[in-house]
Design a protein around this nucleic acid. Structure first.
Lengths: 239, 239
DNA sequence: GAGTGGTCTAGACCACCGT
DNA sequence: CGGTGGTCTAGACCACTCA
């Protein structure tokens, strides 16, 4: 365990235990270096960790101070589905329910920047944890003539990877929107919940380097099985 | 503009322009130091910035490589209500609908670690943007005898601040849970949406230094007015 | 064994702040 | 002015990887 990390833990402990309170000033970097027998650069490495996590903030010419924690702020992260479920200790699975090439509905053709009557590839997956349906995924991308539809890959790969492989467009940027929705008549039986149940809709836009939309679609997550948690975690001891 | 930042911009540009592609290896730290006439520590400071942003990742003994961007990952942030609305260019407002001291219902007493029949302070606020109701907030905290109830402050302060001021407990840690819900019969008229509409419930636990729960409660955000957005951008240019 | 990133040191100069 | 944090240097040792 490197010294800078140990010192970070010591200082974190003092802050979380209330020994150092919000607004208090920390000893100067030189002071800390003397106290703990570390060079100033090492002390700074340690402080930069605590600053990143929002526990302290440094002010040139004045000193370093304990921050008031942002307790009324929340940060939620959603990983790619397989990682997300593994993180939660669940066994992720996916069932490919549909793959089609179809004339783009107006709304979707517009999003993807296609002309009237352009063709899109569509797929739909049921995402499970163990045997429990967790989410439904419906995605659309430009259809590339002659490109083979590889069901095996469609079952396991994330949307951005499917696009990279199927088309010759490389997505470089994404935009996701999270909102609450009601489970639709069609989706209820698939998710094994009554229509009208609360759910989370995670809409996804993937953009190519030229700012065109390479893919669009959404997930519908069961509200009774999927929620998001935001927590402040202590520094780990082992890693 | 410090040298480490300039170099970060140069490398960032090479990655975004495709001169350096995902999977490519960067020159070694010593190599970069020679090329740009910088010490190794300065080069490392620069690389740590790019690594933080997820553009590169370092592997001991092997080298530093350009990362594939995490396009199927989303990060959502909810600020304290007034900041959140200001960020969205809206005028935040709050109306205090109720303040009460009451015997803790079993469920809430348990959360707050109170004995049977302990008293809690409860308040309810309607949060608006302009004249549009955005969310309803219902919060519970331990009741401190003799503490004055300051309606003015209850109207403007975030929950953690209310607790800091009203009680002598200092919240130091928070846990928030986000889930989709249906608007209840009671809340519908207040939020000016039909009961059964989709909404987001943001549950909040505030912990004191001794790990006891200092406050608990939740927000209910209108689903038709409030959604969360996550964007992964190629990068910033200046600043 | 040569090269890599991870860590650490003991200096240094600067802009900034308070007195 | 002296002290603060922000930046930088030119060395050093280590564990690791790869040929």
């Amino acid at each position: 365990m490197p010294p800078y990390f140990q010192l970070a833990q010591i200082l974190e402990q003092k802050i979380l235990s209330g020994e150092l309170r919000p607004g208090d000033s920390l000893p100067s970097e030189n002071q800390l270096g003397r106290e703990y027998n570390l060079s100033r650069m090492t002390v700074r490495k340690c402080l930069s960790i605590l600053a990143e996590r929002g526990l302290i903030s440094a002010h040139p010419g004045r000193g370093t101070f304990v921050s008031r924690p942002a307790l009324d702020r929340a940060v939620f992260t959603i990983e790619e589905f397989h990682k997300e479920m593994s993180r939660r200790g669940l066994n992720p699975e996916a069932r490919l329910l549909a793959v089609k090439v179809l004339k783009a509905p107006a709304e979707i053709g517009e999003k993807l920047g296609l002309e009237e009557g352009g063709r899109v590839m569509y797929f739909c997956r049921l995402l499970l944890a163990g045997d429990t349906p967790m989410a439904l995924e419906r995605k659309y991308m430009r259809f590339k003539k002659g490109s083979p539809i590889l069901e095996n890959e469609l079952q396991y790969k994330a949307f951005s990877e499917v696009i990279s492989m199927h088309s010759d467009v490389l997505p470089v940027r994404s935009r996701m929107i999270l909102r609450p929705v009601l489970v639709g008549e069609e989706d209820g039986p698939l998710l094994q919940v009554p229509a009208g149940s609360p759910a989370l809709c995670l809409e996804q836009y993937l953009y190519a380097a030229d700012e065109t939309v390479a893919g669009w679609g959404f997930f519908v997550f069961r509200g009774d099985r999927f929620s998001l948690v935001s927590e402040i975690r202590p520094l780990k001891e082992v890693e």
